[in-house]
């Protein structure tokens, strides 16, 4: 259940960009969650929705972009997406691979509505 800590960290980061009197204007918080980040998107959404209740972000939605686990093979140089239970190159079978993406856990963007 470390998604709860993650949800808290996300709000703390956003707090650094949005003044208290503007928080109700925040419409979307976009985050990237890699397939190999050990974070369950559904669980993160659930935790985020739970803790947001006690904040001034009254209109906010957490938009999660899932990032595939992509590898590049040291042997055949091909790039492929893999599932996180077999770390070998799907093209040539080599285990000499490097992760290109999939470990991400980042806050990307904050979208605010204009004030009326």
């Amino acid at each position: 259940m470390h998604e709860l800590s993650m949800a808290n960290e996300i709000i703390e980061i956003v707090n650094q960009y949005v003044a208290d009197d503007k928080k109700h204007l925040v419409k979307n918080i976009k985050v990237k969650v890699g397939r190999f980040s050990n974070i369950l998107p559904d669980s993160l959404s659930f935790c985020f929705d739970a803790i947001i209740q006690s904040t001034s972000y009254t209109n906010v939605k957490l938009k999660i972009e899932e990032v595939a686990l992509e590898i590049i093979c040291d042997q055949c140089k091909s790039k492929n997406n893999i599932e996180p239970y077999s770390f070998t190159c799907p093209a040539c079978g080599s285990a000499q691979i490097k992760l290109v993406s999939g470990s991400e856990l980042t806050v990307e963007e904050i979208e605010l509505e204009e004030e009326e």
Binding site: I13, T106, V107
Partner: peptide, 14 residues
């Protein structure tokens, strides 16, 4: 709508 691009790691503090 205005957008603030931040690109910060969630775990940066840790």
């Amino acid at each position: 709508m205005s957008i603030i691009t931040i690109e910060r790691k969630v775990l940066e503090k840790n």
